[in-house]
Design a protein around this nucleic acid. Structure first.
Lengths: 229, 229
DNA sequence: TCAAAAGTGTTAAAAATACACCCATGG
DNA sequence: CCATGGGTGTATTTTTAACACTTTTGA
């Protein structure tokens, strides 16, 4: 069966830039292509948009299908449409960027049918299509966003130490931050719930755990509060 | 002649939210639809993407064709893909937002073959398709952007008074600003070139004209300078 | 007892805010 | 001469930046 149109149309796809943070680096989730074009190369998870789903839904679906990653922060990034971005035919792709708590997803991605792996943003392999450009755009967006929206927390487990939070900001913004000033500022916002728990299994004094108070943030937001770090 | 594909594909369109500023208000450029669906309703300028152009190019082209607006600030906004956004068939639309100096374009738009007109953002008519949602998204983006990128100048003539600049920020951000503090801050950035000219034909003391120094901005930007107002 | 990171305050500089009057110009 | 907006400075508060030592814990 085929579908006929009066005018020629590009194919429509989605691609997802999934960021995760581990002890060392900010990472991106890639899958290895098992078909041409770019067979064997690493690429962003993605695929074609179906007629019964929005592009948001397509991005979510592809993410689950290809990497097992579900229930994560996912936001539309940019639409890429260079005429030759796919050698087969004209494909316009709506890119998304996602933030996940890497420790939740480390295993899944590695055990999926298709080879999937995390790569440090500072050390990416050659990518298929225009995916390097897409990753660059996503990084730029993440760096801009993290400063005035509380999206960084999506990269951490629900309970985290202030040190983990600071490292996150340092990795994303690529600059060192002063510990005391950072703690002062972040606590002054009143968005962190101080828990009666400390981290486990560390070879030194255990740090207190905190939780991001989403409810409180939404309240403050309504009152015109601007997150800023 | 028709084009056949193995899988069904949505049509791909672009829509442009063109902002202009006049003495009273922030305005949006709309055109009146002369065909169904939504015949007679006001809508955003836009149209279908051709196979030999990127979506950026399509947006530029449609803007010129439908409104005569060319050489303006134009930036991709968001891609809209709700299944029922067009009653005829599935159409995915990449929205753009544009900033123009309204005094340059006031006449052109009005004399074009198709009826085009500027509407205050605070008083829009009922729009075709999901165009109200698109305008809202564009407004949100403009408000966010104007504070940390020098895009506001695109809404002014090349030579402007500080009062005009302040009014721009007040209209876009929807809040009053203190005159002295505003002038201090904006001049302290060192991005305004003070001209040896004053405004003409005003019924009171004429204000000095300034020009935005784009070259200087790009230099500072390279050195890590962040515009902020 | 050592290594590693947790936790904690103060001071100085810079930036943001609040605020009011005289001046120049054209009608 | 009056109405309109142009142009200007200071004091206060708030925010940011710089900076170092003691404590806790597990190995």
């Amino acid at each position: 069966m085929t579908f006929s149109y009066k005018y020629e149309r590009p194919a429509l796809a989605v691609d997802c830039v999934v960021f995760g943070l581990d002890d060392d680096d900010l990472k991106v989730l890639l899958i290895r292509r098992d078909i041409e074009p770019f067979q064997g190369r690493w690429a962003l998870p993605g695929g074609f948009v179906r007629m019964d789903e929005t592009v948001d839904e397509a991005a979510k679906r592809e993410l689950v299908e290809e990497t097992g990653v579900g229930r994560v922060f996912l936001e539309q990034l940019y639409t890429f449409s260079a005429l030759d971005r796919d050698p087969r035919e004209r494909v316009v792709s709506v890119a998304y960027f996602a933030l996940v708590n890497l420790s939740d997803h480390r295993v899944k991605a590695a055990t999926d049918a298709r080879e999937a792996a995390w790569f440090a943003t500072s050390d990416l392999p050659a990518l298929a299509f225009d995916h390097e450009i897409i990753v660059d755009k996503a990084l730029e967006r993440l760096r801009g966003k993290v400063r005035y929206q509380p999206v960084g927390f999506e990269l951490l487990p629900p309970k985290f130490t202030l040190r983990m939070l600071q490292r996150l900001y340092e990795k994303v913004l690529e600059k060192a931050l002063d510990k005391r000033n950072f703690r002062k500022k972040v606590l002054a916002m009143g968005l962190l719930e101080e828990l009666d728990e400390v981290e486990q299994d560390v070879a030194h004094r255990a740090a207190r755990l905190y939780r991001f108070d989403k409810k409180r943030y939404r309240e403050l937001e309504k009152q015109g509060f601007d997150f800023e770090l």
